[in-house]
């Protein structure tokens, strides 16, 4: 099997990338760019049961397990959220369920995006992470 970069190493890569930006504009332009580049989710998956609650925008996410690893696909109608999802997918997709569940996600604080983790109705990052971890747990118990 192809070697998978560990979660912590990907997190470090992202932290390094963000350290190059010295203004909020650069940071958000990067996130927006990631959002625009995230492939659109096929329409068949854009249904009620794949929606993540707790987001002001609509977020759909699906996951599957292959050879003990979890793969995610997601989409949103808001581009910043889509960029954040893209970043989460980069960190989690293809990892082992147990690694996903135990990831501390400290890098979000390190890149200055922890405001998106605030427990308000408008920020969905927390809800997305929760759903990704729940999916990982569910796949893990089926294996």
């Amino acid at each position: 099997m192809e070697a998978v970069t560990p979660i912590t190493a990907i997190e470090e890569e992202i932290v390094d990338e963000f350290s190059l930006f010295d203004s909020w504009e650069d940071k958000y332009e990067y996130i927006i760019d990631m959002g625009k580049k995230l492939p659109a989710l096929e329409d068949q998956y854009k249904k009620e049961e794949n929606k993540i609650r707790g987001c002001q925008s609509t977020v759909w996410m699906v996951s599957e397990a292959k050879d003990g690893r979890i793969f995610y696909k997601a989409d949103s109608d808001a581009v910043i959220v889509k960029g954040l999802i893209s970043m989460l997918i980069r960190v989690f997709s293809g990892q082992k369920a147990s690694d996903i569940v135990s990831a501390d996600m400290k890098f979000i604080d390190d890149i200055g995006m922890s405001t998106h983790l605030a427990q308000t109705r408008s920020n969905g990052l927390r809800a997305m992470i929760r759903q990704m971890k729940l999916d990982a747990m569910a796949w893990n118990s089926k294996q």
């Binding site: 504009e25 002001q56 808001a78 581009v79 910043i80 959220v81 109705r121």
Partner: peptide
């Protein structure tokens, strides 16, 4: 999307409501 507007305005110190 209104949420994108809200986030980017907040980064400029401007508080509006979106949603």
């Amino acid at each position: 999307h209104p949420q994108d507007i809200g986030i980017l305005l907040d980064n400029q110190g401007i508080a509006v409501r979106t949603g």
